[in-house]
C-alpha cells in the first residue's frame, strides 16, 4: 500500500501492468475527470495542491505508457527493480508530443522521424531518397506495415484514440492494423477503406499506404 507519491505509473492510473492501449486512455480520461478540481468526489479529501500533484503524475504516467518504446523501457526498469520515480523517457521524443507548428514553417526533422530511422526501427528497407514535405507525406520507397504506421503515428504525437475519434474506425481494428494481425482484420473492401482513412488521419498518402499494407496483408494471410 503506497502513498500516491510513491506509486508507479500503473498504480497511478489504477490499471494492470498488461493494460491495453484503450485501457490506458480510459484510465487517463477518468483520472483527469476526477482530479481536475471539478469533481465533487475529491475536494473533501484532497487539497487542490494534492490534486495538482496527482494530475502531474497522471500526465507523466499517460505520456510514458502511451508510447510503446517509452513503455518498454519503463517496464524494463520496473521489472529490474530500478528506481522509476521521475522516469521521463517520453521526453526523449518530446518533439513528437509537442503540437505541430503551422505547416508552412514546419521543419520536417523536428516533427517527423528520419525515414531511415523509422524504416530501421520497423525492420524494413530504408527509402531510396527523402520525399519532399507536403500536406500528406509520401514516404517514397517506404513500405507500410502496421509497425511502420504505428511508429510514424507515435512520432507525430498522435494517440490511437484520436485516430479512432477522427476516422470513426473501431480502436480494436486500428490496434489490429498496427499490430499486423492480418487474420483479425475485416474483409478486403472494408480494410482498404480503413487503411486510407488511417493514412489520411496521420498525414500519409492514402493510396500508397493502402497498396503497400495490402501486400503485407496478403502475404501474411497466405503464410
Amino acid at each position: 500500500m503506497k502513498m500516491f507519491r510513491d506509486q508507479n505509473y500503473y498504480e497511478i492510473l489504477e490499471i494492470r501492468p498488461d493494460a491495453s492501449y484503450k485501457e490506458i486512455e480510459e484510465a487517463y480520461r477518468r483520472a483527469k475527470e476526477t482530479y481536475s478540481g471539478e469533481s465533487p468526489a475529491t475536494y473533501s479529501l484532497f487539497t487542490q495542491e494534492e490534486c495538482n500533484e496527482i494530475l502531474e503524475a497522471v500526465e507523466a504516467a499517460y505520456r510514458t505508457l502511451s508510447f510503446s518504446k517509452s513503455r518498454e523501457e519503463y517496464d524494463r526498469r520496473l521489472s529490474a527493480g530500478l528506481d522509476v520515480r521521475d522516469f521521463r523517457y517520453y521526453t526523449d521524443t518530446k518533439e513528437a508530443i509537442k503540437p505541430s507548428p503551422p505547416a508552412a514553417e514546419q521543419k520536417e526533422e523536428k516533427v517527423m522521424p528520419s525515414y531511415h530511422a523509422v524504416s530501421k526501427e520497423a525492420g524494413l528497407h530504408p527509402p531510396q531518397e527523402s520525399a519532399p514535405h507536403k500536406d500528406t507525406e509520401t514516404y517514397e520507397g517506404v513500405e507500410f506495415n502496421g509497425k511502420m504506421l504505428k511508429l510514424i503515428r507515435e512520432r507525430k504525437g498522435m494517440t490511437l484514440n484520436s485516430i479512432a475519434d477522427k476516422t470513426r474506425i473501431s480502436i480494436i481494428y486500428l490496434e489490429h492494423i498496427e499490430g499486423d494481425k492480418y487474420q483479425r482484420l475485416p474483409t478486403e473492401v472494408y480494410l482498404k477503406n480503413y487503411l486510407m482513412q488511417y493514412a489520411r488521419a496521420i498525414g500519409l498518402d492514402p493510396k500508397r499506404v493502402m497498396e503497400s499494407y495490402m501486400v503485407f496483408c496478403k502475404k501474411g494471410k497466405s503464410e
Binding site: 500500500m1 500516491f4 489504477e14 477518468r30 483520472a31 475527470e33 476526477t34 469533481s39 465533487p40 468526489a41 475529491t42 479529501l45 484532497f46 496527482i54
Partner: peptide, 16 residues
Amino acid sequence: INIGFSIKSTCLKYFG
C-alpha cells in the same frame, strides 16, 4: 454515474 468511478479512485488513493 462517473462520480462512482471518481469515488472509487479517490478512496484507493486516500484510504488504500
